[in-house]
Simulated assay, not measured.
Amino acid sequence: MAQRLFLTRSLASIMARKLFMRRWALPSAGVLQATPKSSGTPALNLTRLLHNSHVYKITFNIWDGPDFQEKVLNSTIPVVVDFHAQWCAPCKILGPRLEKVVAKQEGKVMMAKVDIDENTDLAIAFDVSAVPTVLAIKNGDVVDKFVGLKNEEQLEAFLKKLINC
């Protein structure tokens, strides 16, 4: 019975994908456009919708030392660096809260996330002895730092200080 259910769902998924691919053509420009069913039906054009939508990468993960150098220390925009760990409960609370406050700044500040278990050398280099630790880096220099949880008002004040210094 379980095999039959799995087979039914798999076939439904494959058929849905085929219908989608038949309905949408991918032109050389890389923008989805609907293909008309008949010559009298106008084609739905999503070019304008996709062209006008901008995606800004405000929050990003750091994978190693050279990545940190390139994305954080060489950045012309101030960067907030969140040193966290997967096992840390306060980190799981602070991370989304910090991302929300950084997003409100509309590109004036970026946020880098560093997992201390995967990047112990970076944690040691920046004297991270407890998590969560958040650094404010501007022009390659650490200008401010805090350890532990903060509420949104405190985080906004922290970011405004970073932007205005």
Results as ranks from 00 to 15, higher is better:
1 M>A: 14
1 M>N: 08
2 A>E: 09
3 Q>A: 08
4 R>F: 08
4 R>H: 06
9 R>G: 00
10 S>D: 00
13 S>R: 06
14 I>R: 04
16 A>I: 13
18 K>Q: 12
19 L>W: 14
22 R>Y: 13
26 L>D: 10
28 S>Q: 07
30 G>C: 08
33 Q>H: 03
33 Q>V: 05
34 A>H: 06
35 T>Q: 06
36 P>W: 05
36 P>E: 11
43 A>V: 15
45 N>K: 10
46 L>C: 05
52 N>Y: 11
55 V>A: 10
56 Y>H: 09
60 F>Y: 04
64 D>W: 01
66 P>R: 08
66 P>T: 07
70 E>N: 14
72 V>D: 11
73 L>G: 11
75 S>L: 10
77 I>W: 03
79 V>P: 04
82 D>Q: 05
82 D>G: 04
82 D>R: 01
82 D>Y: 00
84 H>C: 12
84 H>R: 12
87 W>P: 06
89 A>S: 09
90 P>W: 03
91 C>R: 09
92 K>I: 07
96 P>A: 11
99 E>Y: 05
100 K>F: 08
100 K>C: 11
101 V>S: 06
107 G>Q: 02
108 K>P: 01
113 K>Y: 07
113 K>A: 00
115 D>L: 08
118 E>P: 02
119 N>Q: 12
120 T>N: 11
121 D>Y: 04
121 D>G: 02
123 A>G: 15
127 D>G: 05
130 A>Q: 15
140 G>C: 13
144 D>Y: 01
152 E>F: 11
153 E>F: 04
154 Q>L: 08
154 Q>V: 06
158 F>T: 02
161 K>A: 12
163 I>D: 02
163 I>S: 04
163 I>Q: 01
